[in-house]
Design a protein around this nucleic acid. Structure first.
Lengths: 323, 323
DNA sequence: CCACGGGCTGCAACCGGTTGCAAGAAACAT
DNA sequence: ATGTTTCTTGCAACCGGTTGCAGCCCGTGG
């Protein structure tokens, strides 16, 4: 079918090794020869087969990106940033979705292992032990999960929670609800730890909640009953669901209760009232993940922990506390 | 590093070809031998290298999925469905995003070509000529674009537009605006053709509009001025933007104007009023795309055109026309 | 005139598998 | 006992590249 290196060699009257060098080490081949080979290659539509090359070099110039759920609006910006950043460094990113299933995740990693130089694991569902075991097969960078010994990128949700609560207290809110996420969620734990450490706040923790609109809808009654005037939700979806639930009960946002979300997903911007939220540096995380991975190819082990700051985006779902 | 077929052969005292057959043609090897080999392989953590296998068999058991913009909420359901469906058939799907850039798209296809058995092109931005040229390198299935000669999957937006307009006329609307998409959009053309062919409707076409919330926001003034009571928007984002724009002008939805979107993205469900929309069979399209591709591997050419029906989801953004 | 060194190219082994062919052994038929 | 099949396994070439080594050619300095 497609032209191979041997076709090019034959057509240009040189040995295959010369053709190979024309592409992978141009300075080793005479300018004249090189131009002839390039012309023939162009003519035949020859493109080096990356997979075959990887067999000897051990470098595919591909990187894998595994996410738990591609339809979670939190991921696409990260994916896009990682792809663009990698492309600029002559790497290609292959994305795969695990459907939140640890077993699929494991299988995917094993399949990917030989076809990529490294894998970016975003919010992995696998156990730490499994991750460590698989790490023997392929280099990882872990995003959004604390994992010592491996290069890790964390977005500082604790700091984000502090920003959100400071914002609320600044508006006069004293009694604030924290809607936690799924039990065992690292993110949720961080948020709680940061929130409880703040003073001047009467904190009510409600949860665990499903990290979805449904989760927010379901907890609305409890929120009303708790008598809080401000809420920090586990994420934007929960916040949107909550606002919906409050609305159904005749409680207005932000007039009666202020709500802050986390993630800054697009829906939050489209919703009414537009959501005040803690924006995660997803694009920066994607770029940094690629950098760390590429860097780890270079020298041996460079286990690192990068923590990225979040920021608060104030929109319409928060306002002055009622007296 | 990782165990190869030769390691397994050595450790189990057989020739590499026997190990190879143990995995790729088990019936050709003695049960006893096979079990021994499998045990040793398990022990060494051996996994066949798909890329190396592909070198001789020409089958990678991977398929590529290229989308223009992964953050467009329209795609994730399609991607997830395709991945799950492929996985059940022992294929893996690698997703890549082109950032709406035809050049990136072309480069991506060429890179992917040798690493996958076929590519699913969703809403490609490449010219027909380029697609035909690249088709020599790797089999395609094209989704959401008419492309004769290649297996194509279309979602019948014309039929969807008819459903939407019938719904509106059923509610008493007579004068209806059609917000078209970007100029040159195939989808937009189909919608318009279907809409103008219907009778009992006074159709006002407004556009072209950007296929985003901004596009909808920007056209709101024209919609009000046109005196229509019902609107069919190019997609949900445009519909949401429009509702926002109408709201700012004191026009209520659905009391004053009814709005129907297209795509059934998640944001439409979360928004208030919840959006009435034409749901695209994205999951079915993803599955069918995989089927068509796999099928095209089997025999020679099976150029096909599959058209999938859409359905109308009635929510809160449409209601009785005002008298 | 010869030795030396640099530039360029070919040779052949190798990466990790697959597969057509052939050979040896066992089972079966005659 | 001999011929024929069927099973099972090894041999070796091959997929599409890469790369260490060696050899050739040529210019230069002694």
């Amino acid at each position: 079918m497609a032209a191979t290196i041997r076709d090019v060699a034959r057509a240009s009257g040189v040995h295959v090794s010369t053709v190979s060098r024309t592409f992978s080490a141009p300075h080793l081949v005479n300018t004249e020869t090189r131009n002839r080979v390039l012309a023939v290659a162009e003519d035949l539509g020859y493109r080096p087969n990356r997979a075959a090359r990887a067999l000897t070099t051990g470098r595919t110039h591909n990187i894998g990106l595994i996410v738990a759920d591609i339809s979670n609006p939190f991921f696409p910006p990260l994916i896009k940033a990682a792809q663009a950043h990698a492309r600029a460094r002559d790497y290609h990113v292959f994305v795969a979705d695990t459907d939140e299933d640890p077993q699929v995740e494991e299988e995917l990693i094993q399949t990917l292992a030989k076809q990529v130089d490294g894998v970016l694991l975003c919010s992995p569902r696998l156990s730490n032990r499994a991750i460590e075991r698989l790490h023997a097969d392929v280099p990882f960078v872990v995003v959004n999960r604390q994992m010592k010994g491996l290069p890790t990128i964390l977005m500082d949700v604790g700091q984000g929670a502090r920003l959100a609560i400071e914002h609320l207290t600044g508006l006069g809110h004293r009694r604030i609800a924290l809607l936690s996420g799924p039990s065992g969620s690292w993110t949720s734990g961080e948020m709680r730890a940061a929130a409880t450490a703040m003073d001047g706040v009467e904190l009510v923790t409600l949860g665990p909640n499903a990290p979805t609109e449904q989760g927010g809808l379901a907890v609305a009654g409890e929120v009303v009953a708790s008598g809080v005037t401000g809420v920090l939700a586990y994420n934007d979806l929960v916040a949107i669901g909550l606002i919906e639930g409050l609305y159904e009960r005749g409680v207005r946002v932000p007039d009666d209760i202020s709500v802050v979300g986390v993630d800054d997903i697009v829906s939050g911007r489209l919703n009414r009232p537009k959501l005040t939220t803690v924006a995660m540096p997803t694009a920066a995380a994607g770029r940094m993940a690629v950098d760390l991975l590429l860097q780890s190819f270079g020298d041996g082990a460079t286990p690192t922990l990068a923590t990225l700051d979040t920021s608060l985006v104030v929109r319409e779902s928060t306002g002055e506390a009622r007296q």
